[in-house]
Structures are given as C-alpha cells and as structure tokens.
C-alpha cells in the first residue's frame, strides 16, 4: 500500500494494524486491548533484562507510557510488535545508563575456545543428545534464566530477541539499531556463554 504523501512508503498491515489505527484515530479506551495483547510478553522480556522483578515492572510501565507518548508518530513502516520492542529495548538501555552499574564487559571468542586437546570436548555429551521434554524441568529453566541474566546486557538483549522472542537477525538489528553482522557476532558469543553454563550445570552441577 502507498500513501499520497510518499508513494514509495510501504505500510505493513500486521495483526495490530486496525487496533493501532483505531487508537490513533481517538479510541483511547482500546489502548487496554494493546496492553492486554503485549503485557505478558513485555513483562517476561523485562524479567530477562532486569535482575530485580520490580525493575522489570518499571520497565514495562515506562515502555507503555512511551508507547502512549509516541504512538501518534508510528507510521506502520515496521510491524507494531517490532516498534514496541524497539521502545522497550531503548527504555531499558536508558534506564541502565542512569543506574550505577559497572561498565559492561566484553565477551571474547577466546574465552570459549578450548585451550588444549584435553579441554576440547571429544564426545557429544549426553545432555546434548536428550530430547528436550526429557531434559527441561523447573530447575533447568531457572538455571537458564539466571545464566541469561548473568550475560552482559548487550549480548543478553540479542539472545533474548533472537532465541526467545524469535525475531530474525534483520529485525533484531532494526530493533537495536545495530548492523546484522554485529547481531550475529553478539548472538554467537551469547550462545557460547550459555553453552558453557549448561556444560557446567550438567557436568559439575554448577
């Protein structure tokens, strides 16, 4: 679809299109439907971004307030969901900048490369061969949650968007304002970090 103002501008009619249009047109009460549609997803995204559940609640709240503030400027040039996560991610980054956390550490690939033949895994471990339904339980889910939280934020955001929220590389790059190659680098390191944590958990109960 094109518009009179800019004939080359593409409008993406996703599942939220009509609802968002109605809100922009003045049916403000429908904002509750938008909250209902996304509060659980945003709350869980925030829980994976913040150590403290009350910070996660603040993040959801601020994200929705920013949506209220900026929705009139949304032009449907991307899916609404992607725009929403862009707001959530930038709200999260801004909150972090205001906080007193130490600077983020970088993950280098060298950390994940076995230093000698003995350290290299010569066999596929049992946990990597088991069906997921036999492997996953509450304890492991909590361990994965904690491992994700222990990742430096810039890697955590990428792995959460790619492997949990299921955004593509291109979408993640757009949400975080990064190049696709940067997303790929961060994702690979984040996955290797998580894999090390899982190895530790299964092999040494760490």
């Amino acid at each position: 679809m094109t518009t009179a103002k800019n004939p080359n501008r593409k409008i993406i009619k996703d599942k939220d299109f009509e609802l968002v249009q109605a809100i922009i047109a003045g049916q403000y009460d429908l904002f509750h439907d938008l909250v209902k549609r996304y509060e659980k997803k945003l709350y869980n995204f925030s829980l994976r971004m913040c150590w403290d559940p009350s910070d996660a609640e603040d993040l959801v709240q601020e994200t929705f307030l920013n949506v209220v503030r900026y929705l009139k400027d949304f032009r449907h040039e991307t899916k609404f969901k992607n725009w929403l996560y862009r707001i959530a991610s930038s709200t999260c980054i801004k909150k972090r900048r205001k906080s007193k956390f130490a600077p983020e550490r970088e993950l280098s690939l060298e950390e994940f490369i076995p230093k000698n033949q003995a350290a290299a895994q010569v066999q596929v471990p049992d946990w990597a061969k088991m069906p997921l339904d036999k492997l996953l339980n509450e304890e492991l889910a909590e361990m994965i949650h904690q491992a994700i939280l222990s990742l430096p934020e810039k890697y955590r955001m990428v792995i959460v968007l790619r492997d949990i929220e299921d955004f593509s590389t291109g979408e993640t790059a757009q949400i975080l304002d990064l190049s696709e190659s940067n997303v790929k680098v961060r994702l690979h390191r984040a996955r290797l970090f998580l894999r090390e944590k899982l190895k530790g958990y299964f092999e040494h109960g760490e």
């Binding site: 471990p125 061969k129 949650h145 492997d163 949990i164 996955r191």
Partner: peptide
C-alpha cells in the same frame, strides 16, 4: 551439537 541443544533449550523457555 551442544550449541544446537543450547539454542533449542532457549527457545523452549516459557513465560
């Protein structure tokens, strides 16, 4: 194989 399983476990995370 371990990386593949790591990704699969991540994708199974529930809300």
């Amino acid at each position: 194989q371990t990386l593949k399983q790591t990704v699969a476990l991540c994708k199974q995370t529930t809300n």
